[in-house]
């Protein structure tokens, strides 16, 4: 029994310690994000570039995926609602499922696939090339210059793209409601407005910001763990991305628990 416990215990303790370190590091980064001293002309330039790379460049792909995936899903949801005779709950189902759950989840998956991996590789390459030494040599704080703009851009991008996803899906929902239920535009909009809860919006906003924070913080952290060997780059990206997906699942589960308490 003891060897089994030891075999199970070592990775468990290791993972708990790693999570603890990440959370402690998150605390340091949060204090930097809210510190005015972290923002100067250089970090603002990086912030604008990062928002462009994360939230603007992805738009054609994101809009296409949102329309195709969102329309298919909303079509299925509407068909089920019609079959079960739950038309009166349409607004609650759309706001509770699509806006607060589905939109942040799809958005964070797309951004994690595209931007988190890029950030992880970028920082690992900078480490291998000794470019981080350059920054410290010129007394440039890596947290201020590299971390803060990327994390803020991650948070802003997830929030904005989640809203965009919601708008697009609710837009296709409007078409489905007209064609499947023969519902008027006013009735559809009223159903949505009546089902909107302030607490849901706040939880969605917090969830999006938490997603955005961790899907940029974790790759940054794992990118920094690269050694000076080129072969450490794929290892850093792989480890970082695995942890990003674990973080996404944990945040999703915690937000669900929070909603239903």
């Amino acid at each position: 029994m003891a060897p089994i416990l030891k075999t199970l215990g070592n990775p468990f303790v290791k993972n708990v310690l790693s999570a603890q370190e990440t959370l402690a590091f998150a605390g340091v980064v949060i204090s930097k994000v809210f510190s005015r001293r972290s923002y100067n002309s250089a970090t603002k330039t990086v912030l604008v570039n990062q928002i462009y790379f994360t939230a603007v460049e992805i738009l054609p792909l994101f809009i296409t995926v949102s329309i195709i995936f969102g329309s298919l899903l909303i079509g299925i949801v509407f068909a089920v609602i019609k079959d079960l005779g739950l038309a009166e709950y349409l607004g609650s189902i759309l706001m509770g499922f699509v806006v607060t759950e589905l939109a942040p989840f799809i958005t964070v998956l797309l951004i994690a696939l595209r931007s988190s991996s890029a950030i992880d590789a970028e920082i690992a390459v900078m480490k291998v090339n000794q470019e981080l030494n350059t920054l410290s040599l010129f007394n440039i704080d890596v947290l201020d210059y590299l971390f803060v703009p990327r994390i803020v851009s991650g948070m802003v991008s997830v929030v904005l793209l989640s809203w965009l996803f919601s708008i697009l899906v609710l837009g296709s929902g409007m078409l489905f409601s007209i064609f499947i239920f023969g519902m008027g535009l006013d009735t559809y909009v009223n159903a949505l407005i009546n089902s909107t809860k302030f607490s849901d919006i706040v939880i969605m906003l917090l969830k999006c910001m938490t997603f955005g924070f961790f899907i940029t913080l974790i790759p940054l952290r794992f990118g920094l763990r690269a050694s000076h060997e080129l072969t450490s780059i794929p290892v850093a990206v792989l480890n970082g991305m695995v942890k990003v997906f674990i973080a996404i699942v944990i945040i999703e589960v915690l937000s669900l628990i929070l909603r239903f308490i």
Binding site: V125, M126, N129, Q130, E131, T134, L135
Partner: peptide, 12 residues
């Protein structure tokens, strides 16, 4: 410092 040990930032 002008040195190969302080390279230029490649993504700028």
């Amino acid at each position: 410092m002008v040195s190969v040990q302080a390279p230029l930032i490649s993504n700028l």
